[in-house]
Amino acid sequence: MRRVAAVATSLSALIATSIVAGPATASEASLSCALGRTDAHHSEGVDTWNSTYPRPDRGLDAVMVFLSFPDSRPVADPGELAKDYFPATSRFFDRASYGKFRLRPHIQKKWVRMPHTSTSYGIRRDWDAGHRSAYLHDAVAAADDSVDFSRYDMVYFVADPDAPGVDSDATKVVNLDQPMQADNADLRRFVTVFEQSPPDRNVLAHETGHVFDLPDLYHRPQDGKGDWDTYVGDWDLMGSQFGLAPDPFAWHKWKLGWLGDNQVDCAELTGSTLHTLRTLSAPKEPGDARRPRLLVVRTGKDSALAIEARGAIGNDRSVCKEGVLAYRVHSATASGSGPVQVLDGHPAGAACWGTSVYPPLADAPLGVGESLADPEDGVRIQVTGRTADGDWSVKVGRD
Rank of each mutant, 00 (worst) to 15 (best):
Q222D: 11
L176F: 07
E80I: 11
S318K: 15
S272V: 15
G233P: 05
A351K: 12
R58E: 13
T119N: 07
N50E: 12
G239S: 06
A82D: 10
D344W: 07
A21Y: 13
V65A: 00
D47T: 13
S97N: 07
T25R: 15
S18M: 10
K100T: 14
T355C: 10
F69T: 03
L187D: 06
V155A: 07
Y156R: 07
E28N: 11
E370V: 02
A267H: 04
P198F: 07
G314S: 04
G233T: 04
H210V: 03
K172L: 15
R113E: 14
L176H: 12
G336K: 03
D71C: 08
E308W: 11
L103I: 12
D389H: 05
V368C: 09
T117D: 13
T38D: 01
R55T: 01
T48L: 01
L280V: 03
R91P: 07
P78Q: 04
K110G: 13
K83F: 06
V394Q: 02
K109I: 12
S240G: 09
H137P: 12
S18I: 06
K255M: 05
T273E: 14
S331M: 01
R102H: 06
D186T: 13
D216T: 06
F69G: 04
F149R: 00
D39A: 11
A304Y: 01
W392N: 05
R37F: 05
P70N: 09
H116Q: 13
V173L: 13
L361Y: 01
S393F: 06
P70A: 06
T25G: 09
A139P: 00
A334Q: 08
S90L: 09
I123Q: 01
D399L: 14
A76N: 13
V203Q: 10
E285L: 09
K301M: 15
G122N: 02
L176V: 08
A40F: 02
P248G: 12
S97D: 11
V193E: 14
Q241E: 15
E370A: 06
G122Q: 04
H41W: 11
G397H: 04
A245M: 08
D148L: 15
W251E: 00
V191N: 09
R55D: 02
R298N: 03
W127F: 08
M238F: 10
Q178G: 12
A304F: 01
S197A: 11
D399P: 14
H252P: 01
I307Y: 07
D247C: 08
D77W: 12
F242E: 14
A6V: 15
H330L: 06
A88M: 07
E44P: 05
V63S: 03
D344L: 04
T333P: 05
Q222M: 11
D94M: 13
S335C: 01
N262T: 15
M1I: 12
Y156E: 15
G165D: 02
A26M: 14
T48F: 08
V147G: 07
P56T: 01
P87L: 10
K100A: 15
G79C: 02
P70W: 10
K284R: 15
V4P: 05
D84E: 12
P375E: 07
K172R: 09
W258E: 03
L237W: 13
S68L: 05
V357E: 09
H42N: 13
A40E: 01
Y152T: 01
L187K: 01
L325C: 06
D236E: 04
P292V: 03
R124P: 07
